[in-house]
Design a protein around this nucleic acid. Sequence first.
DNA 1: CTGAATCCAGATGGATACTG
DNA 2: CAGTATCCATCTGGATTCAG
Lengths: 96, 96
Amino acid sequence: MDVLNGKWKIAIISSICCYGKRRFSDILNDVDGISNRMLSKELKELELNELVKRTILNTQPITVQYELTEHGNTLQTTISNLADWGVVHRKKIVGK
Amino acid sequence: MDVLNGKWKIAIISSICCYGKRRFSDILNDVDGISNRMLSKELKELELNELVKRTILNTQPITVQYELTEHGNTLQTTISNLADWGVVHRKKIVGK
DNA sequence: CTGAATCCAGATGGATACTG
DNA sequence: CAGTATCCATCTGGATTCAG
């Protein structure tokens, strides 16, 4: 069950969870290199997996807010572990 | 730094770490659906990242043994967390 | 602003056959 | 047994454009 496949899922989640609530274009800025096509697609998948909640705000122009669900928060620990490991790993492999 | 990309990395690591040492064809059996082509390729990547150690045994016919490196073992905790989370997740999403 | 649609190149991965 | 090579279908994801 790899819910975190796709090139950007982890970065997206990190961006959202770091700020609590985040608008579409904010995430687009946070995550370097992502296209709106991908952001849209992956957000939709995260929504399907109930990791992310989507709220439409009736502003003008319209904005959409994303935040982690409770369930999404349970991932945070695991993801940060993975991220930490990645940092150590990089040091070990690259810096030798 | 997604070292765990590819469709099978996690399953392969699980197989190896579960048994300690594992031969090529054993892993081929453990991991359901994988082809020798993929197994070979992903093992090579894991080896490059120093997660897995490869030892050629001078038996007849020749066999090759794979085991996790120390560094590979540091992943075990994180992976099993991820796996646990996956199980819970599946229950939550599928079984509602 | 949000996000869906189209187009398209390159990566991924399965089946199979072959070598040492 | 372990691994490589080839062929080929499918998937991924970037660029761009369009719509509400």
